[in-house]
Every structure is written in structure tokens, then in C-alpha cells.
Amino acid sequence: MTEEQRVEEFKRAVQAGRKVEAGDWMPDEYRQRLIRFIEMHANSEIMGALPERDWILRAPTLQRKLAVTAKIQDEVGHAQLLYRLVEDLGKPREQIFADLISGKSKFHNVFHYPTRSWGDVGVIAWLVDAAAVISQSALLKSSYAPYARTMRRICWEEAFHLKHGEDIVLTAMMGTAKQRAMMQEALERWWEPLMMFYGPPTPPEQDKDLAWGIKSRANEDLRQDFLTKYVPRIREIGLRIPDPKLRFDESAGRWVYSDIDWDKLVAVARGNGPASQQRLGFRRLSYEETAWVREAITGGAELVA
């Protein structure tokens, strides 16, 4: 069998539902795509901990402080699980971090925006995590089995984040006019990043990650699912979605919404978002400041060995 035939056979097998393990033979393109996809996911988890980190000290009650702290620890834990997968695929952690802090690799667009109020903390934990649960649940069917298994744990923990966020939003909506206005204002700022969350509506047949079975559902499909589940829940509690064109088209069976500026998404994801450089700067600083911890750990190992 030639290399080409072997690759074609592999592709057919994953499309037919075959699951791949870390030690199995895999085509180079599959490995490289997996590394890029999972690395971005992992980077997003660790960068996603930063916007909420700012609110640990400012959370209104002890209960909320503990919940925010627990969520942040979960997100960092998710990054730990995912970085292990990337390392097993052949990219060392030092390289992953070097690429992240130099801006060479990417992290999710939603983490390039600042958190201005406590309203943001609620909206992020409820709706950004809800959006993430939808895409991560689709990854339970990934052709790369170690990734799919990791997603079981991650989705389980995301469910707590959703509840925590929803509770913050509902509590504010039951409060004063000022609290409600704070939530409305936060939702208005977050709506565009949320609509961009799943990326452009790339036709499924052109999406290589779908072809390799790395992910199992098309971007637009995920966005439609998000709108179906969350538009009613958002409206039900008295929040207004800042898109006058948003409606469910019964005859087409899908949501219609205002055009999305996809060039803006590309620019944001490349590091030109309102908080991109500040976040990367912070990640760089904390990576440098914790160098002694890594040295102590690996140095300790040498002494033991």
C-alpha cells in the first residue's frame, strides 16, 4: 500500500466512525490539525481564566468569590487536560507556551474582550460557557478518542459554570433597576462576540476538521442550536437582545440575524481585540514570574533521580 492509499484508507475509516488512539498510526495532516485544534482549545481555557480572575476580589459575596475561584480552577484544569493531549501528539509544553505568549498561536475570540462589570461575569459564565458546552458536546464524537474522552469530564464541569452564571444573571434581574441595567449593558457588549463564537458559516464540505472527524458538527449548525436554546431563555427574564433582525424563520426552520463582520473576528483572533495585548502581556508576565516554580519542580526531579 502506498502512503497515499494509507492516508485515504484512514480518512475513510474515521468518517465511518473509527476512533483513533494516541499510539496509533495517523497521517501527518491529521496529527498537525489535531495539534492546532486542541492547542487552541487549551489556550482558550487558560486565557479564559484571566477575564474572570479580575473579579475574584470584587465578587459581591463570599459564596460568589468561592464559585468564581472554583470556575477559574476548573478552566485551568481543562487547560491541563488538553495540554497533555497536545504533548502526547508531539508538541512539548515549553513550545506551546512560547507560541502562546509570542502571539504565534491563537486563543478564542471571546477572551480578547475586557470585563467591565459584574454583569460580564454573569453573562460570560452563563452564555459563553453555554456556547462552549454546545461545541464541546459535539466534540464527544471526535474521531480522536483521547480528546473525546477528555470532553466528557470538561462538559460535566461546564454544567456547573452555566448554573453559576445563570444564577448571577437571574439574581441581578430580580434586583433593582440599576442591577437590571447592568445586565442589559453587559449582554449588549457580549452579543457580537457570542454570535462570532462558532466562527464563520464555512460550508461543511470545505471544513477540513470536519472531514477528518476532529469535530463533528458545522459552525452554523452549532450557532443555530445556541440560538434555539438560549434566545427564549434570555428574553424570558426580561433582557433585550441587541439585534433588531434576529428572528426565527419558520419556513426556513432557522434563525435569521444581522450580518456578522467576519473580518473583525479574524482581526480580534489575531490579537487586535480590545483586551488581546493586555491579556497576552499578563500571561507572559505570569509565565516569567513562575519560572522558579518550574525550575524547582524539574530540578527537584533531577535530585530524586
Binding site: 491541563q80 497533555r84 504533548e87 474522552r149 477528555t150 524539574t298 526531579a301
Partner: peptide, 19 residues
């Protein structure tokens, strides 16, 4: 359930519990 990377058994135990 997965794996952890550690320089020795002691830290591996801590990481495993935390993760």
C-alpha cells in the same frame, strides 16, 4: 480517566487529586 505529568510520585499524587 486520563493522565498527569509530574517529576515524581509525590507531586503526581497532588496533581491527580486536583485534576
Amino acid at each position: 480517566v486520563g493522565n498527569v505529568q509530574a517529576p515524581g510520585d509525590d507531586l503526581a499524587r497532588q496533581y491527580a487529586r486536583e485534576v
